[in-house]
Write a protein that binds this DNA or RNA. Structure first.
Length: 100
DNA sequence: CTATTGACGACAT
DNA sequence: CATGTCGCCAATA
């Protein structure tokens, strides 16, 4: 998959996110070293070399919306629910409480 | 090197 | 609260 350093960093950070919690693209970008590169982060995840190694579904938008997902936001929502995250109408409930 | 694009963010309307 | 516009960064053509 020839991932770039930036993408690798993002993936690695994402792996650290505990199950049942979520993280925002911007926060991930910030940890990766570029606080405004939320889009670039999304792009990295979209390429999705993750599979079972990186929980892409735990990445959401800054306002608590799910954002996108390679397999569709429906799937993302379902996975989050499985981990104990309550999602309502495409938005995360108590997002602030479960966000890392 | 420049142009286009995309799983975003903040602000204006 | 919903939608639209501009700005952001990195990857790719």
């Amino acid at each position: 998959m020839a991932l770039t350093d930036f993408e690798k960093k993002v993936l690695k950070l994402l792996k650290k996110v505990p199950r049942g919690k979520v993280i925002t693209y911007s926060k991930l970008a910030k940890m990766a070293g570029s606080p405004r590169a939320a889009r670039a982060v999304g792009n990295a995840l979209h390429k999705n070399p993750d599979a079972p190694v990186v929980p892409c579904h735990r990445v959401v938008k800054s306002d608590g919306a799910l954002g996108g997902y390679a397999g569709g936001w429906r799937r993302k929502t379902k996975l989050l629910r499985e981990e104990g995250v309550v999602v309502k109408n495409g938005k995360i409930v108590d997002f602030k409480k479960i966000a890392v």
